[in-house]
Design a protein around this nucleic acid. Structure first.
Length: 112
DNA sequence: GTGTTGACAATCA
DNA sequence: CTGATTGCCAACA
């Protein structure tokens, strides 16, 4: 049998690692795309982003954000609700409303 | 095979 | 602080 490559819509090993790591992020903390890619030692922030875009719906997608702490475009409202519930450290935006995560405190790295 | 796009990041102005 | 530019890697037309 010829080794069939990853069919479209199916998880690859890399995607599995990304999702597994995303699931491992503790409540109240977050990781950036670049951090995940760096920890896995392969791919890059964009590949992690692609995995999350496709299968992120099955994990805590709101705990995976940009390196500068900005939230996901289009899902900011849902993410804010989660952060509020989990007590994630937030940084106030110009209007005095939470618009970003305080990466300085919320950033997390697995198994230190 | 080439060019464009994308749930990104680091650097410069 | 924000905005623009460049670099990176994979998928898609």
């Amino acid at each position: 049998m010829v080794p069939a490559g990853p069919a479209p819509g199916e998880l690859t090993d890399y995607a599995g690692r990304v999702l597994d790591l995303a699931e491992a992020i503790p409540r109240g903390l977050v990781m950036s795309y670049g951090d995940i890619a760096e920890y896995l030692g392969e791919g890059g922030p964009r590949q992690v982003g692609r995995v999350m875009a496709l299968w992120g719906g099955g994990v805590a997608w709101w705990r995976v954000i940009h390196a500068d702490g900005s939230l996901l475009a289009g899902h900011e409202r849902a993410a804010l609700a989660r952060y509020r519930e989990e007590g994630t450290p937030m940084r106030l935006d110009g209007d005095g409303n939470p618009g970003r995560v305080d990466m300085r405190r919320a950033r997390w790295t697995p198994a230190p």
